[in-house]
Structure formats: C-alpha cells, structure tokens
Nucleic acid binder design. Structure first.
Length: 455
RNA sequence: GUGGUUGUAGUUCAGUUGGUUAGAACGCUGGAUUGUGGUUCCAGAGGUCGCCGGUUCAAGUCCGGUCUACCACCCCA
C-alpha cells in the first residue's frame, strides 16, 4: 500500500474557500496599486545563488533554499573538499541556484538587467511567493507570498508619502484599523553618532527595536552585552524616553541633533514627509516611533511599519527607503523606496475579525439538475445564455439521483437550482428553486434569466 | 540553528497501575423517500494508535531515535 502523501514542512495546500479569500486580498491590493500607476512584473522562482548570497546578512544566507545542480555534479568535486566536510566550501560546487528569499533583491537585479528598457522613475508591483528555510511557527511558513510595491529611481519624499497613502487606501478597503509607524534610518544613525557609537549602528537598532516587546532594562542589558559603552547607554536614555506628539518629538530631536549632520538630515526628511501626509487626508493614524528600526540593514532613509489596532499581532506591512540597492549589481546611485504587504498575516486578521465578504464572484449561482439526455438538450441553450450574461452556472454532468444532485448544490452553496423535466418541457418552462427559502417558481427561460440576473 | 510540548478513524477527541477483539461524536456511503437539499430515523464502511527501533510473557500506554504541528529564543512577513 502506498504510504500517506505529505507536503514539505512549512508549506500549505489551499482549498477553494481559502483561495477565494486570498484572492480577495490580492485583488484589493492590486486594484490600489494600479490606481497609483504601478505596473506588475514577475521574476523566476529561482535565482542564481550569486544574486542572492550576501544580501540578507549571515542569517539570511543560512535561510536560503539551495537547488542541487543537475547532472553528475559529484564527479567534479575534488576529493580534498569531500574529506574536509565543510558545507560552506562544498555548497558552491553542488548548487548554483536558489529559491528567492524576497522580492526586493530580484527586483534590483531586474532593474539593473533591464535598465535600458525601463523608464525611470519605475513604479512596479510584484505579488509572488518567496521561500525561507526558517523554522515554521503559527503564521510563519517556509513558502509565503509577498506583495511588494516600489518606486525606483527617484529621491523625492513624495514617493514615501504616496506609499503611506496606498497603505491607508488598502487597509481602509479591507476594513482593518491600522496605525502606520514611521521613522528614519538617518535618525538612528544620528543617535549612534551623538552617543559616540557609530560603529555599532546595527546592534543599537536591533536592540532598541525590541523596546515594544521587552523592558528598557533588558534593552540596556543587551546593548551592554553587544559591547556598547556604559557612557553611550547613559546618553541614549533621554532619547529613548522622548515623549509627545510628532511635532513635539521632531522639535526635541532638532535640539538633540544640533551637532549631527546626518541626524539633522533625518529630522528634515521627517518634517517634509509629515508635511506631505497632512495634505493627503488619511484615515489611518500616523505615529513617529523612534524605536522603529526594522531588521533589514539595507534601509537608509524612511522606515515604515504598519500594525493593526484590532488584534495583537506583529506588523502586517512594512518597508522603507534603500539608497543604492542596485549598486551591488553594478548600477550605482539609484535610490528606491517600497513597502511589502504580508498577505498571510492580513488573512489571519480578516479571518479573526470575520471581515471577509460573504458574496464571492467565484461561486456558482445556478445549477441545472440533470434528468437525462432530452432534458440536457432542453437546458443547454439556456445555460449558454446565462453564461453569456455573466452568471456563473453549471449543469450536473450526469442524470444522477435527484437527491445526490440537490446535496451537491447544497454543499457548494449554490443559491438557485433549475429543474426541467418532462412536465416543464411540455409547457416550455423551467422550475426555479431558491435553495435558501425553498420556494419554487414555474417560469419561462426569459423570466429565468431576468430573475437570476437580479439576485 | 538552540530548548520545550505534541501525534489514536476524514475531523475533534476518549482510552484506567502496561493485560483479550481500540471507542464516541461529527463527517462519509447506502436506505426510509424512483421529481426535491438543509431537520429526523435506520444500517454500513472506515485505524499498521505518526514512523523506526528497544524494554517486557504482553506496548496505543514505558524508553531511545526520527518526522510533523505547535510554543519560546534567533530572526522575520
């Protein structure tokens, strides 16, 4: 006997109901992207490892799925390498392709490769699965979808502002209450500068990013463990404790950064961004969060993160500005800014809050019961007319027992069943049954189409 | 990658200090009802107790390993 089939760890099948719900999210997102003039691209599931390696830090490299070379690859491996048993040295001999880890790096590669065909600034969106060899947990998978929007080739902060507007638009449509948290890497760099720990920018950002989750004491402890001097930690405290609304925080930062050029630049960018946002009449709450760092270390300017106010959950959307992402692929000086929507988490929020729409464009509206060959022939022209007028409809493919066909309609939640047997045919009519109320009507084909189109 | 919890019909779960033939509910199939689904009633099918090994006269139950899902780190969407 065949053993039970299964799928790889951290991957999922999607049932029809789930796909319909997921498409609702993707369709809403795409609609808004298009509304702002973004165009879709797609890139291959696999990239050359040389494109992917070293772009996500040391951790990231470990989480890349690598694809085994084809053919007799072992014959080319020198014996000494096999004896050494050093995976890091052996891997390049066995694998030269990997599954993409995110959509941003392949996008950067795409831009460099097609730079002469692209009109800048390039506004693109991309909705595709990505793969990470992470340990799965609830809401964390090894295969998941990212929905990215980026503008590349423009330094204007208007792009940041529009991305926030897109976020506002999408979550308003999805009926999720959100707060958009904003910060700027230059502020964080300024902080590192004035406390005299320029070198430790990454450690500092990672540590203060945790302020929401763990206590101030723990954060300070972690900073000390990472080798940040006690003096610097002391200097950091008043900054972490900054209070007030956005303009108050910005005012205080101006004083703090009097001697930090990069810090001042960050303050100016924030002022400009919030200036744009004020004119956009957003429904979403905005918050300047100085502890917002986000892990990805290619961000250089604005940092954006979106959380829902409706339930306790990590961010459902995030992004920022990255200067010079294409530099590593040989095209320096092109700046980009983008955000990525976490489809899986948005799904969980909508499910939890029961916000998926009941009506779906993907379910069958009308089922013709099949009574036999003559009856089939009688129904087919009407079925064709229904479909022509855009009504999802089907005929049961064989003249099975009535009960079986009714159960089929019931399970598929088909709202209307059409019965046409001998007696109906004799009168040139159809019996239309409303499956919810159980009511039945004897109607002509024209009346049938009219009634069904209305409901 | 580190540490922990878990696994029994399709699903959710019972299963005594280790002791004959592993149960229930829901679901599924058929019937009551040859032109009527959701409610009801009757009958039936469905399990290598995640997998591999060990201890024992005897293992769903104890031990080791492994896989899976989940939880906390790490990191992240």
């Amino acid at each position: 006997m065949a053993q039970k089939p299964s799928i790889p760890k951290g991957t999922r099948d999607f049932s029809p109901v789930e796909v319909v719900k997921r498409n609702y999210i993707f369709d809403t997102i795409k609609e808004v992207f298009r509304l702002y003039g973004f165009q879709p691209i797609e890139t291959p599931a696999m990239e050359n490892l040389s494109t992917l390696m070293g772009k996500y830090g040391e951790e990231g490299d470990k989480l890349l799925f690598k694809i085994l070379n084809s053919g007799d690859f072992m014959s080319k491996v020198p014996y000494e390498l096999l004896d050494e048993k050093d995976s890091n040295k052996l891997t390049p001999k066995l694998s030269e392709k990997g599954l993409r880890y995110d959509l941003t790096v392949p996008f950067a590669r795409f831009v460099v490769q097609h730079q002469n065909e692209i009109t800048f600034p390039f506004r693109r969106y991309q909705i595709q699965p990505v793969w990470r060899a992470d340990r799965p947990q609830k809401g964390r998978y090894r295969e998941f979808f990212q929905c990215d929007v980026d503008v590349i080739g423009s330094d204007s902060l208007l792009n940041e502002a529009e991305l926030v507007q897109i976020v506002d638009d999408i979550f308003t449509r999805l009926k999720i209450n959100t707060v958009v948290k904003l910060n700027n890497r230059k502020i964080l760099a300024g902080i590192a500068e004035i406390i005299g720990e320029n070198e430790r920018l990454t450690d500092i950002t990672v540590a203060i990013d945790k302020l929401e989750k763990i206590s101030l004491e723990k954060v300070n402890q972690e900073l000390a463990e990472k080798g940040v001097s006690a003096e610097a930690i002391e200097k950091l405290q008043p900054i972490l404790a900054l209070k007030g609304d956005t303009s108050e925080k910005i005012n205080q930062l101006e004083t703090i950064f009097a001697n930090s050029e990069i810090g001042m630049k960050g303050v100016n960018e924030l002022q400009m961004l919030f200036g744009y946002l004020e004119r956009m009449e957003l429904k979403t709450e905005l918050e300047l969060d100085l502890t917002l760092a986000r892990g990805l270390n290619y961000y250089t300017g604005a940092i954006i993160e979106v959380k829902t106010k409706d339930m306790d959950m990590g961010s459902i959307c995030g992004g920022g500005r990255y200067d010079d992402l294409t530099g590593i692929f040989g095209l320096p000086g092109v700046s980009g800014v983008g955000v990525s929507f976490g489809a899986e988490r948005i799904y969980d929020v909508l499910e939890h809050l029961n916000l998926f729409p009941q009506e779906s464009a993907e379910i069958t509206k009308v089922l013709f019961v099949n009574f036999g060959e003559k009856e089939e022939a009688y129904c087919l022209p009407v079925l064709a007319k229904l479909r022509k007028s855009g009504i999802n409809s089907e005929i049961f493919p064989e003249s099975a027992k009535m009960k079986k066909q009714m159960i089929y309609a019931n399970k598929k939640e088909i709202p209307i069943v059409v019965l046409a047997g001998e007696s109906e045919m004799a009168e040139q009519k159809f019996t239309l049954k409303n499956m919810e109320s159980g009511e039945q009507f004897l109607v002509t084909s024209e009346e049938l189409i009219k009634i069904v189109s209305r409901s």
